[in-house]
């Protein structure tokens, strides 16, 4: 049961230090259901650090994070149960089959075997991976592994889907397929999507945008507003302008 009217993801004044080094400085934003928010930032901007906080790999010491209305610190299990994650680095077990990887995830989320099997069929069919469910992950190429990871992240029907640079290392057709699919997801399944990337060509005109640089949010708003505010002809040049030439 979700907390009524709460945003799917609420980040409030979150800061993170690695020793003396400031990685995130008072970061605040929300992501609503049905919305696709692109977290754009050059390498080292703090995107992965923010994801580590949202997934509670690190504890939030300053600020607060709520997922579907549940405070991540106080109600971590409820909050994490509403989160689907695709990490930058593959987290699939290479020696297990696609199906076995998904069953493992279903077990960790407490899904019964019957429901899990139904959802696995649904998600793999959507990703055109059903026929390959018995193959080990090692046998799949990078694009197909990513599809399996997205299917896995959606298995428990999360409110929020986090994707941390999911297209890194993929060829153009695979990248396009994933970008299109995830953008569709936010509207067709009413999921809040937070997509971290440093590639401006993954942004749709309808997306909300957060530009993060050196742990500070430099811009928040729509693509259109960004172009108007910065008076730049493209997102790429606006991004370059805001991050002072650093890509």
């Amino acid at each position: 049961m979700n907390v009524p009217m709460a945003p799917a993801l609420f980040i409030d004044n979150v800061s993170l230090f690695y020793g003396e080094k400031l990685a995130l400085d008072k970061v605040s934003f929300t992501v609503s259901r049905g919305e696709c928010v692109i977290l754009l930032g050059p390498n080292g901007a703090g995107k992965s650090s923010l994801f580590s906080l949202i997934t509670r790999l690190y504890d939030t010491r300053e600020g607060a994070i709520e997922i579907a209305g549940f405070n991540l610190k106080r109600h971590s299990t409820k909050a994490l149960g509403r989160l689907g994650v695709v990490f930058q680095q593959s987290t699939l077990d290479m020696d297990l089959s696609v199906e076995r990887n998904l069953l493992y995830h279903a077990d960790l989320h407490g899904l019964g075997r019957k429901l899990a099997n139904t959802r696995i069929c649904e998600e793999l069919e959507r990703q055109a991976m059903f026929e390959r469910r018995h193959e080990t992950v090692r046998q799949l190429n990078g694009g197909h592994r990513r599809r399996v990871e997205i299917a896995r992240a959606l298995l428990h029907k999360p409110d929020v889907l986090l994707l941390d640079e999911p297209t890194v290392g993929l060829d153009m057709p695979s990248r396009k397929a994933i970008v299109d699919y995830v953008h569709q997801l936010s509207t067709t399944q009413n999921i809040a999507v937070l997509w971290a990337t440093h590639l401006v060509d993954e942004i749709f005109a309808t997306d909300q945008l957060i530009i993060l640089h050196k742990g500070i949010i430099r811009y928040q708003g729509s693509v259109q507003q960004l172009l108007e505010t910065t008076a730049m002809p493209s997102v790429a040049s606006a991004f370059q302008h805001l991050t002072k030439g650093e890509k």
Binding site: T55, R56, L57, S76, T77, K78, A79, L80, G81, L83, V85, F87, Q89, S90, T91, L92, D93, Y104, H105, L108, H109, G110
Partner: peptide, 13 residues
């Protein structure tokens, strides 16, 4: 390898 994250981000203590 990153596999540990699957376990650690699951909704259990």
């Amino acid at each position: 390898m990153g596999n540990m994250r699957t376990l650690l981000v699951s909704p259990l203590p």
